[in-house]
Design a binder for these strands. Structure first.
Length: 493
RNA sequence: GAGCCAUUAGCUCAGUUGGAAGAGCACCUGACUUUUAAUCAGGGUGUCCCAGGUUCGAGCCCUGGAUGGCUCACCA
C-alpha cells in the first residue's frame, strides 16, 4: 500500500467517516462499559437467555437482510453474533448501522437469544461506534497468509488468525509458570544492565552503541551471566533474570537478533542440581500450560517426564559416530580426523574444540527426546568449573530436544586465578581474530577474588522452549515482532 | 555470507507456447426483518515487486536489484 495513492476501498471509508460526522456521530469514541465478553455469553447462555448484555468488539463479518442484519463481533475472548433490526434500533440508528464496515469497533447492548439455526446471538437495541476502521481487513475465510505481511503487520495477523493469538497467550503463560516455579523455590528475580562496558558470559558478537555524555561505546548484553554471579558474591543465594539478550549474528528459523533468556544461579549447588532444576522447570511449564508431558513437535512425539537421560559428550560422540575420543588424545590426531570430515579447523585448533565440532556434526540432530549432554571440553567452556578427574573437561551440560539446544548450564568456575587464565586464553583467540571470544573482565575477576560461593548456573532459551511447547517451526512464530529489514512503502514497520 | 524458491486487485490465488490482465472474498448499486463462507441481479477497482534488455509484441524470456521464505554457514 503506497502512502500517496489512496485506494478506493480506503476512500469509501473516509467518505463514510464524513457522513458519520455529518450525522453527529463521533467515530472515535470513548470507553464503553461492557457486561460480558463474547465467550462468556456463549458459555453462560442458559443464565443469560432473554437478559440484556453489553459487549464490545471488532466487526468481523456482516450479513445484511434489508431492514435487518447480522454481524460477528470479535473481542479478545472470541466472537459472538449480533442481530440488528430496524424495528429495534429505530430509523436513525439503523441508518448509522448501515454505515458500519467490517473492521469497525463497536459497543452494543441487547438481549441474548438463539436463532432458528441455533446460534447464540445478541439482538441489539442500541450500539455505539467506538473506532472507525479506515482500511479493509484481510479476507475473512483465508485470513492473512503472506508471512511477510503477517510479521510486519502482526496486528492484522492477530485480528484475522485466531491460532496466532493462542501461541502468544501460551508464551505468556509459559513465562508466568517459570516465574511461579522459581519464586516458589525462593529464587529472587533481579534486573541487571542490558548495556555493558565489556561483553561477556557467552561467545557471540555484540551490538555496539554509543553513549554521548560518557563519550564511550556500550555493548548490548549477550548474556546475563557475569552480573548474576556478582550477585552471588554479594550474598544472594538464589537469583534469576528473565530478559532480552542481543547477539549480532545471523537470522534464521532458530535465531533472532534479540531473544529472551532466563539465567538461574543457585549457591551451594552443582550441575547435577541444575539438571534436576531444568527438567523439573520444563515439565512444570508443560504441565501447567499444556496439561501434559507428552508433546508433539513437528510430527515428533516427545516425553518430557523427568528424569531425562544423561550422557557425556564423549559417550554421545561414540554412540553416533563410532569415534572414541577417550583414546584420541593428541591435538594432531584430532586435527587430522576433523579435516577428514571437512570440519572447519585451523592449525591451532585443539582437541577440545574438535570434540565439540564432532558433537555438533555427528550428534546434535539425533537428539530428539530430551537429554542432557554432560562434560564439555574446557576450551569451549571458559566459565565452567574443571572436572576433578579430568581437567580437560568441565562440569557443564546442555539440554537438547528436537535436535535443538534449549539449556546450557554448569557448575560455576569460582576460582579467580583459573578464571583469569581462561579469560587470557579467550583474549588470545580474540586477538587472533575470533570476534566471538570472550573479553577480559577485570571487575568480574575482582568480584571472584572476594569469594563466590560454589554454585550451579543455568541458562534457558525461552523462545526455543516456547517453540517446542507450541509446536512452532520458526522462532518468528513465537516473537510478536521478529526482526525484519524495513520496507520503504510501509513507513518502515 | 552462499544456494534454491516466491512476489499478479485490499486479501487468497489462477494466468496454457510470448499474442486484448482473471476468479473468489472484500467493495459499490439494487432486492431481502432469524442469516452465518447468507442469497439473488448488476459493477473490475491493477506500477503483474523495481530497473534495464531481447522481441512486431513481455505477467511469461534474459541481466541486475529489492523484500520475504527455505536450506546451509554462524549461533542460542
Amino acid at each position: 500500500m503506497s502512502q500517496e495513492t489512496v485506494h478506493e476501498l480506503i476512500l469509501r471509508r473516509h467518505e463514510k467517516l464524513k457522513e458519520l460526522y455529518g450525522r453527529g456521530v463521533e467515530p472515535f469514541g470513548e470507553k464503553y462499559s461492557v457486561s460480558h465478553q463474547a465467550q462468556e455469553i456463549l458459555e453462560h447462555f442458559e443464565e443469560l437467555e432473554g437478559k440484556e448484555v453489553s459487549v464490545s468488539g471488532r466487526i468481523m463479518t456482516m450479513r445484511g437482510h434489508g431492514k435487518a442484519g447480522f454481524a460477528n463481533l470479535q473481542d479478545e475472548s472470541g466472537q459472538v453474533q449480533i442481530y440488528a433490526r430496524l424495528d429495534d434500533l429505530g430509523e436513525e440508528a439503523y441508518e448509522c448501522y448501515r454505515l458500519l464496515d467490517i473492521g469497525d469497533i463497536i459497543g452494543v447492548k441487547g438481549k441474548v437469544f438463539r436463532t432458528r439455526k441455533g446460534e447464540i446471538t445478541v439482538s441489539i437495541t442500541e450500539f455505539q461506534l467506538l473506532s472507525k476502521s479506515l482500511r479493509p481487513l484481510p479476507e475473512k475465510w483465508h485470513g492473512l497468509k503472506d508471512v511477510e505481511l503477517r510479521y510486519r503487520q502482526r496486528y492484522l495477523d492477530l485480528i484475522v488468525n485466531p491460532q496466532v493469538k493462542k501461541v502468544f497467550i501460551l508464551r505468556s503463560r509459559i513465562i508466568q509458570s517459570i516465574r511461579d516455579f522459581l519464586n516458589h523455590q525462593g529464587y529472587l528475580e533481579v534486573e541487571t544492565p542490558t548495556m555493558h562496558t565489556i561483553t561477556g558470559g557467552a561467545s557471540a558478537r555484540p551490538f555496539v552503541t554509543y553513549h554521548n555524555t560518557l563519550e564511550m561505546n556500550l555493548y548490548l548484553r549477550i548474556a546475563t551471566e557475569l552480573h548474576l554471579k556478582r550477585l552471588l558474591v554479594g550474598g544472594f543465594d538464589r537469583v534469576y533474570e528473565l530478559g532480552r539478550i542481543f547477539r549480532n549474528e545471523g537470522i534464521s528459523t532458530k535465531h533472532n537478533p534479540e531473544f529472551t533468556s532466563i539465567e538461574v544461579y543457585k549457591a551451594n549447588a552443582d550441575y547435577h542440581d541444575m539438571m534436576e532444576l531444568t527438567e523439573n522447570l520444563v515439565a512444570h511449564a508443560a504441565e501447567k500450560v499444556l496439561g501434559t508431558l507428552q508433546i508433539t513437535y513437528q510430527g515428533k512425539d516427545m516425553d518430557l517426564t523427568p528424569p531425562w537421560p544423561r550422557m557425556t559428550m564423549l559417550e554421545a560422540i561414540k554412540t553416533y559416530s563410532d569415534y572414541d575420543f577417550s583414546t584420541i588424545t593428541t591435538d594432531e590426531e584430532c586435527l587430522k580426523l576433523a579435516r577428514k570430515h571437512k570440519l572447519e579447523v585451523y592449525n591451532d585448533t585443539v582437541r577440545g574444540e574438535v570434540i565439540n565440532l564432532f558433537f555438533e556434526h555427528f550428534v546434535e540432530r539425533h537428539l530428539v527426546q530430551p537429554i542432557f549432554i554432560m562434560d564439555y571440553p574446557l576450551e569451549v567452556s571458559p566459565l565452567a568449573k574443571r572436572k576433578k578427574d579430568d581437567p580437560n573437561f568441565t562440569y557443564r551440560f546442555e539440554a537438547f530436544m528436537a535436535g535443538s539446544e534449549i539449556a546450557n548450564a554448569f557448575t560455576e568456575l569460582i576460582d579467580p586465578i583459573d578464571q583469569r587464565e581462561r579469560f587470557k586464553k579467550q583474549v588470545e583467540k580474540r586477538e587472533a581474530g575470533d570476534e566471538e571470544a570472550h573479553m577480559m573482565d577485570e571487575d568480574f575477576i575482582t568480584a571472584l577474588e572476594y569469594g563466590m560461593p560454589p554454585a550451579g548456573g543455568l541458562g534457558i532459551g525461552i523462545d526455543r522452549l516456547v517453540m517446542l511447547l507450541t509446536d512452532s517451526p520458526s522462532i518468528r512464530d513465537v516473537l510478536l515482532f521478529p526482526t525484519l529489514r524495513p520496507r520503504e512503502d510501509t513507513g518502515g514497520a
